[in-house]
């Protein structure tokens, strides 16, 4: 089952993992990625604003999860992405994948993050403590990571 949430509210990573484990005996393992707001730039970060395209965001994450399901034998996928104003250290994103064997879970989790980074319509704007602001630039390395999954060998 695929579960997608795009929300301003914080989430509980432990609760998300328990949902992936819940009442099942066929789950062999769960791989997760939990992302948070980092303050590692040249200027101290006050907060980060996350803008998104309501409707398309959820559809894009759903489509990515379905692609992962087609590619690997998965049991459940849970994706949570926060929007609005977030402080350094706040959680932004959770991707959790359960499967029978670890390889599918590890791969699918990474695939989903690489697709989310390059396709889900979110935009980050940084508000620094000195009062200045900056829209975060997309990274070429994210495009390269995405492209790895679609190379024809």
């Amino acid at each position: 089952m695929i579960t997608i949430a795009v929300q301003a509210a914080d989430f509980d990573t432990g609760q998300e993992i328990r949902q992936l484990q819940a009442d099942r005996t066929d789950v062999g393992g769960i791989a997760i990625f939990a992302g948070q707001v980092r303050d590692t730039g040249d200027k101290p970060l006050g907060f980060m604003h996350l803008e998104h395209y309501p409707g398309m965001t959820e559809a894009s994450l759903q489509q990515t999860a379905e692609q992962a399901e087609q590619r690997w034998a998965l049991i459940d996928i849970r994706i949570v992405h926060r929007i609005g104003d977030l402080l350094p250290g706040d959680q932004i994103v959770f991707v959790g994948v359960s499967s029978i064997h670890r390889e599918a879970a590890f791969n699918a989790c990474e695939f989903i993050m690489d697709h989310l980074k390059t396709h889900a319509p979110f935009w980050k704007k940084e508000y620094y403590r000195d009062g200045s602001t900056k829209w975060v630039d997309a990274k070429q390395t994210d495009q390269q990571r995405y492209a790895r999954w679609h190379q024809h060998n």
Binding site: G35, L50, Y53, I92, L116, A120, P121, W123, W135
Partner: peptide, 23 residues
């Protein structure tokens, strides 16, 4: 997601935006 050659009709919702930076 669309491209420059995607055809349009009057009832469409079109969105234009910079490269995405979520995650």
């Amino acid at each position: 997601m669309a491209t420059q050659s995607t055809l349009l009709k009057d009832s469409d919702e079109v969105a234009l935006f910079p490269p995405v930076t979520g995650g």
